[in-house]
Each structure stands twice: as structure tokens, then as C-alpha cells.
Amino acid sequence: MSVETMLFWLFAILTCGGAVSVAVSQNVVRMAFSLVLCLGSTAVMFLLLGADFVGATQLMVYVGGTVVLLVFGVMLTATGPFTKIKSSGADAILSGLIGVIFLFIISTTVTAVDWGDISQKVAIGTHQKTAARGFNPEQQGNTTRPLGLSFLSVRADRDLNLSRNVPSVEKPVEDAPKLSSGYLLPFEIVSIHLLVVLVGASYLARAKRRVATNQ
């Protein structure tokens, strides 16, 4: 068992444990802690999968941002007796049952698939060279730059090793390889989206005077 494997199992257990802990815990504060644990472990999982940039982002955004936000939420709302709001046992049993079945189904599905076969099948429809290779091993652990480029619509990971048969007079345009598409537009959309969301959230969450009648 290599270190990688060991690390995987360790963090897999942490992740799953955190998730289960979030699900079963009745205390919001504990849930938040478990969530931090869970998400952090997930970030490690990302790293293990070679997605170093994603993993980092996960840590920063989620653990550093989102969860803190949630904790703030907990603090702002958890006043006195409302900290613990227990759900009924029947609910828990029902949810648990569904969860188990769900898990079973997903696991069955996952195990039922021959992944090598799938990658072959998928490759037929995609780019030949990269399809054969899967993800570029040279760049493992160094995805930042390609990611950044892809957000600028340059697909270094795909188009870098294309044969250089540029279109010319002799060769018609049709024969020229087509460049893959990037994510400039989604990126921009998400940016705007975020801006809007933040403005909206701050608007929603701004301090309001209680209306007297609500008392």
C-alpha cells in the first residue's frame, strides 16, 4: 500500500465521517465543525486526484469562506432554546432508509461500470490524441496554468500537441484541425453572477427594523 493509497483511505474515512457526522449531529455548531472537517478532507481528495488548483480553491473558498459564513449564520440565528431543533425519530428513520437505498443504488451503479471500457467508448467521440492518453501525466499536480488558460479560452491541455497543419492555399480550411473551446464566456457569466449574488445577498441580509406588528 503506497502512501497515496493510505492517504486516500485516511481522508476518505475523514470525509465520510464528517459527512455522516453532519447528517446525524443535532447541534449546529458541531455540524459546522464536522462540515469543516468534511470539506477539508474533500480538498485533500482533490489534491489526491491531481486537481491541485481545485483543491486549493476548495480549501480557501469553502473552508475559509463558505463555512465561516455558515458559522456566522449559526451564531446569528442560534439564540437560546432554538439552538437545538430536534427532528422527529420517524423523520430520521425515513431519511436514513432513503439514504441507505440511495447509497446502495449509487454504489451498485458505480461498481457496475467498467471504467476502462467507458473511457474507450467516450474517446471515440472526442479528440483522438488526448482521448488515448487520458489526462496529461506531465502536467499532473500543475493544473493551475491550463485552468487559467482555459478560462481565457485557450485549451493548452488539448490543442498544444496538435499537428501543425495550418490552413494554406494548398490545403483547404476543412482539413485544418479545429481548436477546442474554452470557458471564457462561462467565466465571465459566473463573475457577473457572483457580483450580483453578493450585492443581492448583502441587500437581503442588511439590518432591518423589525416591524412592530410581527411581535
Binding site: 427532528s87 425515513l94 432513503i98 439514504g99 437505498i101 443504488i105 451503479t109
Partner: peptide, 20 residues
């Protein structure tokens, strides 16, 4: 809202079961 989520989950499960 919780109930709705439950329904969704049940539906998905049912869908899968039926699919299988």
C-alpha cells in the same frame, strides 16, 4: 421544505429502481 426534499429523494430512488 424538508418534506419536498424527501419527495425528491424518494422520487429519484424510485426512478432508479424503476430504471433498473
Amino acid at each position: 421544505i424538508r418534506q419536498y426534499v424527501t419527495f425528491i429523494a424518494v422520487s429519484v430512488v424510485t426512478l432508479f429502481v424503476l430504471l433498473f
